[in-house]
Structure formats: C-alpha cells, structure tokens
Design a protein around this nucleic acid. Sequence first.
DNA 1: TACTAATGCATACGTGCATATGTATCGACT
DNA 2: AGTCGATACATATGCACGTATGCATTAGTA
Lengths: 159, 159
Amino acid sequence: MSEHRDVLSTPGHLVSLVARGFARLSEARLKPFGFGVGHLPVLVALRDGKAGTQRDLARFARVEQPPMAQMLARMERDGLVRRTPDPADGRSHRVALTEMALSCLPEATAVLMQGNRDALAGFTEAEAEQFVDLLARLLANLDRLAAKGPGRRWSSAVP
Amino acid sequence: MSEHRDVLSTPGHLVSLVARGFARLSEARLKPFGFGVGHLPVLVALRDGKAGTQRDLARFARVEQPPMAQMLARMERDGLVRRTPDPADGRSHRVALTEMALSCLPEATAVLMQGNRDALAGFTEAEAEQFVDLLARLLANLDRLAAKGPGRRWSSAVP
DNA sequence: TACTAATGCATACGTGCATATGTATCGACT
DNA sequence: AGTCGATACATATGCACGTATGCATTAGTA
C-alpha cells in the first residue's frame, strides 16, 4: 500500500525542501543585485503599478502586514524603495521604486528565469507545464483549506 | 512565447507559495500535539534511530547546525526531547525523544498524512505520484546546483 | 455633529532558516 | 607528551514569516 510512505516523503515535506533549495539558489544569484527573493513580489507589483500602499503590497505578495512593513523598511534602508506620506490618506504611505531598483529589475528577473530553467533541467516542456499546473491546483486547495479555519486573508483571487 | 511569463508564475515562486501554505496548514493541525512542522524530521530520525547527535540530526533534516541547535533547545524546553552528555565523546550530546513525544508521534504523523490528502484533493493517484516524482527530480537538480558553489553540505544521499 | 466601526501602520515577540565566528574536545602525528 | 587540524557545539546577527496588540485616521451612522 502506498499509504505506508514516511512523513518525510510526503508532498508537503518535499515541497518544503524544494522551496528552501530554490530560495537558496535564487538568493545567491540575486545577491549581486542587492535583491532578496522575498523582494520580488514587491518589486514586480510596484513596477507594474499593481499596488502602491503597504497593505496592497502585503496582499499582492500574500504575506501579512507586519512582515511586509519590516521588509519595506529594509528595502528603504537599502535604497530599493521610497516611502512618502499619502496626501489623500493620513494613515497611508505611497511606496515607489527607486531608479536603482527599477534599472536592476530586468536583469534580476532574467537571472531568476535562468535559475528556474537550471532547476528544471531534464524536464520536458510538458512536464514543466504540468508541474506548474499541479502547483496551482495545490495552491488553490491550500487556500480553500485555509479559508475554513481563520478568516480569509487574501481576496481569494489567485493570479 | 511561453518565455513571457511573469517571475511570479515561475515554478520557483509557486513552490514557495505552496510551501508556505502547506506549512501553515500543518502548523495549525500539529499545534494541539505541541509539535511544529520543523520538528518532524527530528522526531522521525530519533524514533527510527537514524540519528542520535545534533550534527546527525542537522544532516538528516538538511538544515545547518545552528538552526538545529536552536530547535533542539526549544524542543528540550518544551519537553519533546532530552539531551544527555555523550559518555564516549565530551563534545557531543545524545539526543532522545521523551515518552510524551513518542506517544504523540503516531497520531501527529497521521494528521500530517491526512493534511497531505486534503491538500491533494482532486489529484488522481497518477498525478500525485508524478508530482512527487517531479519534486524529487527538482530537488536533485537543486542539490546539484548547490554543490557547484559552496562546499557540499549533505551526504548527497536523498531518501 | 458626535460616536463607533473599519482601516492602515507600528511594535513586540516567537519561530525557522541562514552565515560568521568562537570554544572545547578529539584524533593523529611528530 | 605536545601540538595541530578536524569536529561538535554555542553564540551573535540578520532575514522572512506568523500572531497578538495598540494607535491614529478615516468613514459610516445615529
């Protein structure tokens, strides 16, 4: 029976190991640009005008607000981002990319893409596509499961 | 061209999201037992006698030594584990599960397994198997890539 | 208009993971 | 036996993530 597999051979644990491996690889390759893996959702959202405030960025990146605040603080400290008070809302800050970050982004994303190709070495095109498909379905399941217990966090719209 | 995908649709980023979702689900379900997701490799290794020292446990769980030291300290604090000086080696400590941890383990792993089934809802048996296979191949690639840069960390034997 | 609820942030704290570095012990070799 | 490199562990520091709270502002409503 395939039930007898160990806990450490489950998809959950394997995904965790793969995620850490991916993160270490990407972190290493992104370091020359001054970026970290976690920065990417923020950078992309700001570049594409998908989000301008801290809360929007947190939602977009699917993290909670305090981690996003901390990350933005570090990114501001490192010159990747600028925060200015929102004239229309006294509570809010408008977040914008610096020219430095904007100019580094294309090459950084290219490096990321190459990292993905390297990691998927030996995968056929069909396998790679199915992998992404399975991941997306898994993510949808996990979102659905998370929505059962606590109050839903994200707008339940998965890109 | 499928090259035009966004960085946030890459396998790397998706895997990261899935891993976080899995971790949150498992963390929530494991909390009643006093376990955390990161504890599982340690608990299983100790139960199966696969490792008895801190260094072995770190290698088994594929984490560095300082994180493992911290985790063992918390696990000892929480009564999951006991550390006794190794009579044969003055530098080393023998790590052992407490009866409490040992008695909770079966049910905890069962809950974990169920969580995996829940997360894989809608997957055919073939899809689930292929997913695990793709993950294993990806992990092997990532290990190979990691071995290029820094000195290899784990014994390059992936269970 | 005044009061209350919702919203946006900040802070505090715990956890998991990483690197860098120090300390003590062990083993091997002169 | 004494010395030196390897080994096992501890400590310090930083990042990413989470929850729990508190505060200020905005907005909805009596």
